[in-house]
Amino acid sequence: MIHITKEAQQKLSSIEWQDGELPRLDANVTGGCGLTINYLFIFDQARKNDTIYHSHGVSIRVDHFTKSYLEGNPPTIDYSDTDGFQVINDVAFDSC
């Protein structure tokens, strides 16, 4: 469901998580007339109905809403020292 590049895995494994915090892949709706889903990669607390993906020793939270956009369209989480974490794969839909 989610691809994580080697660079991102390494970085995530090196982070010490505190107080219930974990990384989250979060579908964010923006737009108005034409709606676009773009993914944010953030660190935050659990939400009700979260799913946790475990991959190569890292855990990533996804809420129920975000999950519905992942099926069949797995985004990739990447990391570089210059740009930080990045999610590749946005979805535009419902433009009028």
Binding site: V29, K48, N49, D63, F65
Partner: peptide, 10 residues
């Protein structure tokens, strides 16, 4: 509602 896992879209 987002904190409870529900979005405005829902």
């Amino acid at each position: 509602q987002k904190k409870l896992g529900i979005r405005t879209m829902n």
